[in-house]
Design a protein around this nucleic acid. Structure first.
Length: 684
DNA sequence: AGCACGCCGACT
DNA sequence: GTCGGCGTGCTC
């Protein structure tokens, strides 16, 4: 069918531009299709459609991105095959974001869209459409002052006027949202009690109040948190400041139906706050007042699916596109946020009045008590814990989950490994049969691969073993374990020793009477570019769970990082950390891209880079299977050029892939893969 | 990914 | 003469 004239006769557009759902880089652009007469009435931007890809001889799913009356495309247009649903699920601002994120990350927009829009759920959609028909005016929250008081939305009235964000100068945060500002906000390292008697981190209330300020102005809010436990805290805090029908939960642990329902609500006209993990940053929100990201340094903000865009970058790009306010909230600060502060992109907001936790660094010392020594607790720390546990719960943070996180052969000392998959063995509970950390297989009739020995011994101490030992050190005291496998959100305020792995600490009413940070040395010994800032983050987050003026003992760590925690001058330490990275030209002082693939493909890709960028390449080094990997470093200002260059090489590699296939058998040969801003680019 | 188009060797 | 090998290119 030829391109059609511009004068629409019937209703609806004659031409649509469609994003085809395909991971192929060469299909990552819009395709024009003619709309047959019978479907025209149903077309709106954002709906799902089925379209033919003739040369591929198949029907593909896609989204209508734009409508038009004619096409610029030279050749004939195919017709849309069908409209999947008339509900617009790809919001225009989400499409724009997806496109920009993909461009920045050298990936496909459809990969981002796939993360943003869950699969269609017909039942949910029907219920939504039925509800929308019965719904009253489009913006009930926009109250016309001339209407009678009975017309005022009761939920808004119940919850009072625009909230003031407590813990900060009253103008600071409400003003920030109103002015669409951007800031790194230091969270108050204390807990707060909500009207319903529950306790949450002060940060959660701050996030909720920021959201409430935005909703009061008729705009949406997005609150992104690392995990579902943090999500619970924000939801509790939100319940204190907003009616329940204004809160939408959206996270990757939900079923597709729940996620689809959440998306439809966020897509609606009523302002809502959308709360969840990294995926909420891709939620529809046409009128977006504020984006809040809590604890952006947490690794769960790094997206494991292509195009691997970190939630922090999604937030930043979205803020720029929609001109919302943006808040990075945290007890500590990532080097990335520190960089944004130092280049003047983010303002700094500190609590007022300032509260400084009582952190006591303790270098390793002999414990007087034998059981305390066994539990790695120096005598001064033990004394603090002993005294504090009389009055309520005491938190002990440890590095590793399980009982014995590592096992070794008694005879040769080599790490005990799974006979099936070669993964490291561990012991989850005392007396439990060792199992593989990778495949979970039980090591029943185990023998050492190195020396054929058949006995193993524990190396290192996990949370539940620490708990066992503490049971002896604190006779008669209740011991509670919270680790990755079984993470608690809350404990009660009766005396107890709460042993938790970093990041899995429960909240105690009123705060812990003392906090012991064990295993600091071991945490700092981890091989990672970001150890120092990670440790500071883990310790700061645990510190924020202590009661006011309760002692927080950092065991076995000294130096600048310990003083940073003790003086609560965390940003200063992170700034020094960032300065080191500038000297070394490591992220986040520079950006990185890892380029993986066959030797010649990678070589050609690197060759195509701008000269200054190519000279800063690390590698290529050999990686399995049969490929190489190089790491490209570049300044932020070069990001656009580098992404463009690498993307064109990815497309090229994808299209002449068959040459390589012909030589080297099937798909064992990796095509070109590019990953920008890997959090651990130097791992493996 | 799939599928068509196209330009050289063995075949009724 | 032409059937079909897969190398090359395209998908509105």
């Amino acid at each position: 069918m030829p391109a059609v004239a511009d004068t629409p006769v019937g209703g609806g557009p004659r031409v649509v531009r469609v994003m085809v759902e395909s991971p192929l880089p060469q299909l990552d652009r819009l395709f024009d299709y003619a709309v047959p007469e019978r479907l025209r009435e149903q077309i709106t931007p954002g709906i799902r459609v089925r379209v033919p890809l003739r040369s591929a001889g198949r029907i593909a799913d896609g989204f209508v991105v734009e409508t038009a009356s004619s096409s610029e495309h030279g050749g004939d247009l195919s017709e849309i095959d069908d409209v999947v649903s008339t509900v617009s699920v790809l919001a225009p601002e989400v499409w724009r974001l997806a496109r920009a994120l993909a461009d920045r990350a050298g990936g496909s927009a459809s990969d981002v869209v796939r993360l943003a829009v869950p699969p269609r759920q017909v039942r949910v959609e029907k219920a939504h459409l039925a509800g929308a028909e019965n719904a009253s005016p489009r913006h009930p929250e926009v109250v016309d002052p001339s209407t009678s008081p009975t017309d005022v939305d009761p939920s808004v009235e119940d919850h009072g006027p625009v909230p003031v964000v407590v813990g900060y100068r009253s103008t600071d945060l409400a003003g920030l949202v109103a002015a669409r500002g951007r800031a790194a906000v230091d969270a108050v390292p204390l807990l707060v009690e909500l009207p319903d008697g529950s306790w949450v981190g002060h940060w959660a209330l701050t996030a909720a109040q920021l959201a409430a300020v935005s909703l009061a102005a008729g705009d949406n809010a997005v609150v992104a948190v690392p995990d579902y436990r943090d999500e619970e805290h924000v939801l509790q805090a939100l319940a204190a400041v907003l009616p329940p029908d204004r809160v939408v939960r959206l996270d990757s642990r939900q079923s597709n139906a729940d996620r689809y329902r959440a998306l439809l609500r966020a897509r609606g006209d009523e302002p809502v706050v959308v709360v969840g993990n990294r995926s909420v940053l891709l939620a529809p929100s046409t009128r977006l007042g504020v984006i809040v990201v809590f604890d952006d340094g947490d690794p769960s903000f790094s997206e494991p699916l292509a195009p691997y865009v970190h939630a922090r970058d999604t937030a930043l790009l979205r803020q720029t596109q929609q001109e919302s306010a943006l808040v990075f909230l945290g007890h500590s600060r990532s080097t990335d946020v520190q960089r944004l502060v130092e280049i003047g992109f983010l303002a700094e907001v500190r609590p007022d009045p300032r509260y400084q936790p009582r952190v006591v660094p303790t270098v390793r010392q002999a414990a007087s008590d034998g059981f305390a020594a066994q539990a790695r607790i120096p005598s001064s720390a033990y004394a603090e814990a002993r005294a504090a546990v009389e009055h309520g719960p005491v938190l002990i943070q440890v590095a590793s989950p399980g009982y014995s996180p590592r096992l070794a052969c008694v005879d040769c000392g080599d790490t005990a490994r799974c006979l099936r998959c070669n993964g490291p063995l561990q012991q989850r509970e005392r007396g439990a049969t060792p199992s593989c950390a990778w495949c979970g297989a039980l090591a029943v009739s185990w023998h050492c691969r190195t020396c054929e020995g058949t006995r193993m011994r524990a190396v290192g101490t996990g949370a539940s073993r620490t708990a066992d030992e503490l049971g002896k050190a604190f006779p008669g005291v209740r011991i509670i374990v919270s680790d990755g496998a079984r993470a608690l959100t809350h404990v009660d305020d009766a005396p107890a020793i709460v042993v938790a792995t970093r990041g899995a600490e429960p909240v105690a009413p009123g705060g812990y009477r003392a906090v012991l940070l064990l295993d600091g040395e071991r945490m700092l010994a981890r091989e990672s570019l970001r150890v120092a800032e990670d440790c500071l983050r883990w310790w700061a987050n645990a510190t924020a769970l202590a009661a006011r003026r309760a002692p927080v003992v950092l065991v076995g760590v000294g130096g600048a990082i310990a003083s940073a925690l003790a003086t609560w001058e965390l940003a200063r330490f992170v700034s020094a950390e960032l300065a080191d990275r500038r000297v070394l030209r490591f992220p986040p002082a520079v950006r990185v891209a890892t380029v993986t693939g066959a030797v010649e493909t990678v070589a050609r890709a690197l060759d195509d880079l701008p000269d200054e960028v190519r000279t800063e390449t690390l590698g290529p080094v050999d990686v399995d299977p049969a490929g190489v990997r190089a790491i490209v470093r570049f300044d932020y200002a070069r990001g656009h050029d580098v992404a463009l260059a690498l993307r064109s090489q990815v497309i090229r590699a994808a299209t002449d892939r068959r040459k390589a296939l012909g030589q080297k058998r099937a798909r064992a040969v990796p095509t070109l893969r590019v990953r920008f801003d890997d959090v651990e680019p130097f791992a493996d």
